[in-house]
Write a protein that binds this DNA or RNA. Structure first.
Length: 887
RNA sequence: GCCCGGGUGGUGAAAUGGCAGACACAAGGGUCUUAAAAACCCUGGCUUUCGAGCAUGCGGGUUCGAGUCCCGCCCCGGGCACCA
C-alpha cells in the first residue's frame, strides 16, 4: 500500500495496514482448515450467535477476541486449529426481531449474518468461513429433524398433554429452563400454565449421567454447581399410605423415611388426581373452592416461599404404615404436583414447612429424634432437621444421619411398604413451539397409526413460505393454517393424515451445531463419525454463563444420546469451558414515572436490571435535562441504547488496539466497565511498540542467530539484561495465553517495551557493537511473533518489513532459553520478626549460611538486636527471603 | 432462606502463605515546541517527630510471616427458591 511506504512517518497507519492484511488473509485463504493435516487437531469454539440487526457491539469482543488470540497462539504452537463460526438463526430471538421490523426472517437473517461476518472480519478474527453454517437453512435443519427422529427412535421423544409454561406475549410454550423467575427469558412476561399436547425430550433419563459427567470436564466450578443444582438429584424413598376406608393408595416421595414415625398428617397438591376420592362429603365444597383458588393464582404467587402456607382439610385419613395410626390428609398448594408424587407425608417435628403448617392448623407434632430425654414437641420453636437420637419405633437410639435413612429404607422394602428411589428436580425438555421460525417437527398424525415419524428419506420437512408468520395465540402454530403443509399421507398406511405443525425451539439447533462444523457440507449425514471423532470434543469452548442450564445442558444431553447410538466416541462435547465477563456501559436513565407499567416496552424489558430506573430512549435525550438524568453502569445492549460498535472503534483506534484493550482491561471472566480512555491507552501502547520497533529495525542483522549462539560470546550487562527480559517475556506470554490470563500477558509485553525503550534511550546516537546488534536483531525478529496473536495486523506488517514473506500466523511461536531467562542475581528480603528491614543482593547460588551472615551484618538488623535481644530462630526462604526471629 | 462469585490507591487491576499496589488509566511536575498536540523523562497509598508507624470490607484465629488459610459477621453481584 502506497500510503504506508513513508518510513520516516513514525505514526502507525492502522487503517491502511489492517485493511491490507485482512485482504491478504482472505485472498490467501489463510484461515481455511483442512482435515488432512498432519499437525495435531485443536478445536476452539465460540457459542454461535443469532445475528441481530444492530450487529455486534464491543461487548461481543469480550469472547470472540480472546478465543481468537488463544486459537492463533495454538496455530503458532503447531496445532491444526478448527475455529469456525455460524448462525443460530432459528428461534424466538430472530423471529421476534423479524416481527418487530415487519420483515420475513428468511430474508432478514442472511442480511444480518452478512453484517456480523463483516464486523468479525473487521476485528481480525481468524474464522474458517468455509465452514459457516446457518441453522435455519434446509441443509442444516434437515439434520436437526434427523436428530429428533433419532431421539424418537430411542424412546426419548414423546408427546404428552400436561400443563406447560405458556408465554402469553411470545404465544408459545417454553421449556422450564427458559422460565426465569416465573418470567419468559426473552420478553420478561409472566408465564402461565396451560394444558396442551406438547412434545418433550426425555432429558430426565440422563439426569444421573449429566451430573456424573461433570466430574472430568474442565469447566468453571460455578457452572458445574449450577447444572448440578438444576438437575437436583435427591435420594430418598417412595412410601405407600393406604387411604382409610378406600382401596386407594397414596404414594409419597420423601428424603427422610426415617422420620415416618413422626408423620402426623399428609398433604396432597391441589391438582392431585386422588383429591376427589379422598375428600369427605362435608369437606368437598371447601376443598373444591381451594383447588379453584389455587388454579387461578400464578406460579409466581404460589411459589413464593415467604407466603404463609394455606391449606384445607380433605376430611379423609391415611394410615401410617409404620404404626397404623390414622392421620388427616390435607390439600395445600405448598406441595407441587410437578415434583415427586405430588403428595407428601408431613413430619412437623423435623421439617420446617410442615412445622409451620402444623402450628397454624393445630395438628399434632411427634418427635422422632430427641436431642435430650426431656425434650418435648410442645416446646419446639422450629423443626429439628438434624441432631439427636431416635426416641421411638424399632430403630430407637439410632443417630439422625444417612446410615439410619438407609436402614429404614431397607426395612420398608422388606415389609413391602416402600422402596428406595432417587428423584430429580429437572423436568423433561419441552421442545414444541407454536411458532413459525423453527425446524418443523418431523411427525405425521395418522388417525389409524397415531404419531408416525417422517421417514428419514423424506427429510427435510421444509418450512413453507407463508404470508403471515405471526404467532396465532390459539395454541396452534402459524403452520396449522396452511393446508398444503398440513395435509399429507400417513407413511405407514398411505391414508390421509396431518402433519405436526409445531416447530422445535431454537435450543434444538444449538444442541448439535458444534458437531456439524467438523463436517459442514455433508449431504448424506449430519456428519461423518470419522470427522467428528477427529475434531471433537471441543478443546476450548467460550461463551456466556447465562447458558449454564439451557444450551450447555441440552448439548451435553444430545451428545450423550449420539454417543449411546454409536455415532460418537465421546460423550461430553466441551472439554474446557470459559465464560467471559459482561461489558457494562455508563448509561443515562431516569426515574420510573408512577403510571408506567412493566413490560410496556417488550424489548427493553428483558435487559433492564433495575426496577426504579428506566433507560433514556434516544428521543427522550432531548427532553430530559442533564440534572434529571440518572447514570448507571448497565449491560451494553442495543435495547438500552448504550452500544458502542467495533466499527467506530476500529475506525478511530484500529482493530489491534480494540483487541488489546479488551484483553488488558481486566481478567477474562470479570465484568468490565467500558471506557474510551482505556482504549486510548491501548492505542498509545500499540503506537509505541510500532515506533520503537521501527527505530530498532535499522539495526537488524538477519544472521543474528550465529552471533548469539557463538561460544564465549560476552555481552555487556545491559545487553544480557535486555535478552533476559525478552526470554522471560516469551515464557510469561506463553504461560499466560495458555491460561487465559490476557491482562497479565499484556502487562508483561508492556514491561518488555518499557525496558526496550530505556535501552534505546541509552544507545542514543552511538553505534552498537556486533553483540548488541545481534541482541537487538533477536528482539526485532521475535517481538512481532510474540505479540502476533494479540495484534495480528501490526505483526504481519512488521514481518513484511523485516523482509520476510508470508504471515506470522504461519510461523512458530518463539521458544525461550532457560539459561538466558535465568536471573543473574536475586534480592533477598531481610525481615526481623516478620517485618521488612533490609534487602541484600546475592548471586543465585549463594549458600544459606552466607545469606544469614550477610543478613546479620545489615546495619538495620544490628539496630534491632540492641538492648540485649538475641536471635531465637532463622527462617530461610531460599532465593527470596530470610526472617530473623529475635526477642 | 440456600448455592456460587466478589470487596486491595483517585480509577481498571497485580501478587505458588514470603517486599502489597506489577502493568495501565486519570493527575501533578519537567524536556522538546513561538504555542499546543504528540513523544520522551520524573513523582505519586495514608500518617510521620523522617527513626518509623498504619494500610487489602469488619472482628477473631492459625503461622516466624496472612490480601492469600480457618471461624464469625457486614456489604455488592449472579443463580436457585415451599423440590418433600
Amino acid at each position: 500500500m502506497s500510503d504506508i511506504r513513508d518510513e520516516q512517518d513514525n505514526r502507525y497507519d492502522f487503517r491502511a495496514t489492517e485493511a491490507k492484511w485482512q485482504e491478504r488473509w482472505e485472498s490467501s485463504e489463510l484461515f481455511t482448515v483442512r482435515d488432512d493435516d498432519s499437525r495435531p487437531p485443536y478445536y476452539g469454539l465460540d457459542m454461535f450467535p443469532y445475528p441481530s440487526g444492530a450487529g455486534i457491539s464491543v461487548g461481543h469482543c469480550r469472547n470472540y477476541v480472546p478465543l481468537d488470540v488463544a486459537c492463533r497462539f495454538k496455530v503458532m504452537q503447531g496445532y491444526n486449529v478448527l475455529h469456525p463460526m455460524g448462525w443460530d438463526a432459528f428461534g424466538q430471538p430472530a423471529e421476534n426481531e423479524a416481527i418487530k421490523r415487519g420483515r420475513n426472517p428468511k430474508e432478514m437473517v442472511p442480511e444480518y449474518a452478512a453484517n456480523y461476518k463483516r464486523q468479525l472480519k473487521l476485528v481480525g478474527i481468524s474464522y474458517d468461513w468455509s465452514r459457516e453454517v446457518n441453522s435455519s437453512t434446509p441443509e442444516y435443519y434437515r439434520w436437526t429433524q434427523w436428530m429428533f427422529l433419532l431421539l424418537h427412535k430411542r424412546g426419548l421423544a414423546y408427546r404428552a398433554n400436561t400443563p406447560i409454561n405458556w408465554c402469553p406475549s411470545c404465544k408459545t410454550g417454553l421449556a422450564n429452563e427458559e422460565v426465569v423467575n416465573g418470567r419468559c427469558w426473552r420478553c420478561n412476561s409472566l408465564v402461565e400454565k396451560r394444558p396442551m399436547p406438547q412434545w418433550f425430550f426425555k432429558i430426565t433419563a440422563y439426569a444421573d449421567r449429566l451430573i456424573s459427567g461433570l466430574e472430568d470436564i474442565q469447566w468453571p466450578e460455578g457452572i458445574k454447581a449450577l447444572q448440578s443444582n438444576w438437575i437436583g438429584r435427591s435420594e430418598g424413598a417412595e412410601v405407600d399410605f393406604k387411604v382409610a376406608g378406600t382401596d386407594d393408595t397414596l404414594t409419597v416421595f420423601t428424603t427422610r423415611p426415617d422420620t415416618l414415625w413422626g408423620a402426623t398428617f399428609m398433604v396432597v397438591a391441589p391438582e392431585h388426581p386422588l383429591v376427589d376420592a379422598i375428600a369427605s362429603e362435608a369437606q368437598r365444597a371447601e376443598v373444591q373452592q381451594y383447588r379453584e383458588r389455587a388454579q387461578r393464582s400464578t406460579e409466581m404467587e404460589r411459589q413464593s416461599a415467604d407466603r404463609t402456607k394455606t391449606g384445607v382439610f380433605t376430611g379423609g385419613y391415611a394410615i401410617n404404615p409404620v404404626n397404623d395410626e390414622l392421620i388427616p390428609i390435607w390439600v395445600a398448594d405448598y406441595v407441587l404436583m410437578g415434583y415427586g408424587t405430588g403428595a407428601i407425608m408431613a413430619v412437623p417435628a423435623h421439617d420446617q414447612r410442615d412445622f409451620e403448617f402444623a402450628r397454624k392448623y393445630h395438628i399434632s407434632i411427634v418427635l422422632v429424634y430427641q436431642t435430650s430425654d426431656d425434650q418435648t414437641a410442645d416446646a419446639l420453636n422450629e423443626a429439628l432437621p438434624a441432631g439427636g437420637a431416635m426416641a421411638l419405633g424399632p430403630f430407637t437410639g439410632a443417630p439422625n444421619d444417612k446410615s439410619t435413612v438407609g436402614k429404614v429404607i431397607a426395612w420398608l422394602e422388606e415389609r413391602g411398604q416402600g422402596k428406595g428411589l432417587i428423584n430429580y428436580r429437572i423436568r423433561d425438555w419441552l421442545i414444541s413451539r407454536q411458532r413459525y421460525w423453527g425446524a418443523p417437527i418431523p411427525i405425521i398424525h395418522c388417525p389409524e397409526h397415531g404419531a408416525v415419524p417422517v421417514p428419514e428419506a423424506d427429510l427435510p420437512v421444509v418450512l413453507p413460505d407463508v404470508d403471515k408468520y405471526q404467532p396465532t395465540g390459539t395454541g396452534e402454530s402459524p403452520l396449522a393454517g396452511i393446508p398444503e403443509f398440513v395435509n399429507t399421507i400417513c407413511p405407514v398406511c398411505g391414508a390421509a393424515a396431518k402433519r405436526e405443525t409445531d416447530t422445535m425451539g431454537g435450543f434444538a439447533c444449538s444442541s448439535w451445531y458444534f458437531l456439524r462444523f467438523a463436517d459442514p457440507h455433508n449431504t448424506e449425514a449430519p456428519f461423518s463419525s470419522e470427522a467428528v471423532n477427529r475434531w471433537l470434543p471441543v478443546d476450548l469452548y467460550v461463551g456466556g454463563a447465562e447458558h449454564a442450564v439451557m444450551h450447555l445442558l441440552y448439548a451435553r444431553f444430545w451428545t450423550k444420546v449420539l454417543h449411546d447410538a454409536g455415532y460418537l466416541n465421546f460423550d461430553e462435547p466441551f472439554q474446557r469451558l470459559r465464560n467471559q465477563g459482561m461489558l457494562l456501559a455508563w448509561t443515562a436513565g431516569r426515574k420510573v414515572v408512577a403510571d408506567e407499567t412493566e413490560g410496556d416496552d417488550e424489548e427493553a424489558a428483558s435487559d433492564e436490571p433495575l426496577e426504579d430506573w428506566k433507560v433514556l430512549k434516544p428521543e427522550e435525550k432531548l427532553t430530559v435535562p442533564e440534572d434529571e438524568r440518572i447514570y448507571r453502569w448497565v449491560k451494553m445492549s442495543k435495547s438500552l441504547y448504550n452500544v458502542i460498535t467495533p466499527d467506530e472503534m476500529a475506525e478511530k483506534y484500529g482493530a489491534d488496539s480494540l483487541r488489546l484493550y479488551g484483553l488488558f482491561v481486566a481478567p477474562f471472566e470479570d465484568t468490565v466497565q467500558w471506557s474510551d480512555k482505556g482504549i486510548e491507552g491501548a492505542s498509545k501502547f500499540v503506537n509505541r511498540v510500532w515506533r520503537l520497533w521501527n527505530e530498532l529495525r535499522t539495526y537488524f542483522v538477519p544472521d543474528w542467530r550465529t552471533v548469539v549462539s557463538q561460544d564465549g560470546l560476552v555481552l555487556p550487562d545491559s545487553d544480557r539484561a535486555l535478552r533476559r527480559k525478552l526470554h522471560q517475556t516469551i515464557r510469561k506470554v506463553g504461560d499466560d495465553l495458555e491460561n487465559f490470563r490476557f491482562n497479565t500477558c499484556i502487562a508483561a509485553l508492556m514491561e518488555l517495551t518499557n525496558e526496550v525503550s530505556l535501552y534505546r534511550n541509552a544507545i542514543g546516537t552511538s553505534t552498537p557493537e556486533l553483540g548488541s546488534l545481534a541482541v537487538l536483531s533477536e528482539l526485532v525478529e521475535l517481538l512481532p511473533l510474540i505479540i502476533a496473536p494479540i495484534t495480528p495486523h501490526m505483526s504481519d506488517e512488521m514481518w513484511e518489513r523485516l523482509g520476510k514473506s508470508g504471515f506470522t500466523f504461519r510461523e512458530s511461536f518463539p521458544s525461550y532459553d532457560d539459561a538466558t531467562a535465568a536471573e543473574e542475581s536475586v534480592t533477598i528480603v531481610v525481615q526481623v520478626n516478620g517485618k521488612v528491614r533490609d534487602r541484600i543482593v546475592v548471586s543465585p547460588g549463594t549458600t544459606q549460611e552466607e545469606v544469614e551472615r550477610l543478613a546479620l551484618a545489615c546495619e538495620k538488623v544490628a539496630r534491632e538486636l540492641e538492648g540485649g535481644k538475641t536471635l531465637r530462630k532463622v527462617i530461610p526462604v531460599p532465593g527470596k527471603l530470610i526472617n530473623l526471629v529475635i526477642s
